[in-house]
């Protein structure tokens, strides 16, 4: 279990990384925290010819407080984001998700951007990106653009990021004030990838009607998915457990689960529905307490 050899470059800045990537685009891979990539290389499931290491880029102001949300540089470790006061104040649901990522030893090295670009459909940060309408700042040697998270994930471990591009930062939008949120996962062991996960946000108006709702599932399709059909049934309504149970039936529209060595596709479908109800119930409770 040793990686195949490769050429190693230590990037000193994102611009430098883009230069290197442009020179080696066909064979190169970006190394950030390496908590998935190095494991895959140890198994020789991945054999990049060239690694461009961005884990030691000098990176002041990793997390910035912006008007409509919090911007996190892609190379920020998950542990730094998890303990950051601005993130804890404005995006407590993101802190909850970060705490579900593997174990604290992994989060000390794993990065926020790395988890997103790795695009494991069962991982938390791609799902949180959909929940929080995230925008990704993407850079190549010649270009810089912004892409909405919902356009980013193509299929298993595959994103719209081109081979000469680097994810620079993520803007997680702050949901309405006084919203409630919840995240639920079923995993084999604390810190394992979720067999099924679900997250929800609900915001209420003065009359107790739902004015903003997001429902996201992960581990149940080739990418994380937003259950828009569930959301549509809840907007403008006074929520109740009965309504949630009715709405959660609609998750089957986005669930495209596979059976694997752990559980069957049918199990994943059932659990997706159950966890959606739990997330909605808990999100509503938090919203009612907050307002």
């Amino acid at each position: 279990m040793k990686p195949a050899n490769f050429e190693y470059f230590r990037a000193t800045s994102i611009d430098h990384a883009c230069e290197l990537l442009s020179a080696h685009a066909d064979d190169a891979k970006i190394l950030a925290g390496g908590q998935s990539l190095i494991a895959a290389m140890n198994y020789r499931l991945a054999r990049p010819q060239v690694l461009i290491d961005i884990s030691n880029i000098d990176n002041p102001s990793q997390i910035t407080d912006e008007t409509d949300g919090v911007r996190i540089k892609a190379t920020t470790t998950q542990a730094i984001a998890e303990h950051d006061p601005v993130v804890r104040e404005r995006l407590p649901m993101l802190v909850d998700a970060l705490e579900h990522i593997a174990h604290f030893q992994i989060r000390n090295k794993g990065t926020v951007g790395g988890s997103i670009v790795n695009a494991d459909p069962a991982s938390e940060l791609p799902a949180m990106s959909l929940l929080l309408d995230a925008e990704y700042e993407i850079q190549s040697k010649s270009n810089r653009h912004v892409m909405a998270a919902e356009d980013f994930f193509i299929t298993y471990m595959t994103t719209a990021l081109q081979s000469d591009e680097v994810l620079v930062s993520i803007l997680f939008k702050e949901p309405p004030k006084n919203c409630g949120w919840a995240l639920h996962e079923v995993a084999r062991r604390a810190g394992d990838y979720a067999l099924v996960g679900s997250a929800a946000i609900i915001a209420l108006d003065d009359g107790g009607k739902c004015v903003h709702v997001r429902v996201v599932l992960f581990g149940v399709a080739s990418t994380p998915v937003r259950a828009k059909a569930v959301e549509e049934l809840l907007v403008g309504q006074v929520c109740s457990d009965e309504l949630f149970e009715e709405a959660a039936k609609r998750v089957s529209e986005v669930v495209d689960a596979e059976s694997d060595v752990h559980v069957t596709d049918e199990y994943r479908g059932n659990v997706a529905e159950v966890l959606t109800v739990r997330s909605l119930v808990d999100a509503l409770n938090r919203a009612q307490t907050a307002s």
Binding site: I154, T155, Y156, M157, T158, A160, S222, T223
Partner: peptide
């Protein structure tokens, strides 16, 4: 197949 299908659809 599943990954190819995803990429093709995209």
């Amino acid at each position: 197949g599943r990954v190819m299908t995803g990429i093709s659809k995209y």
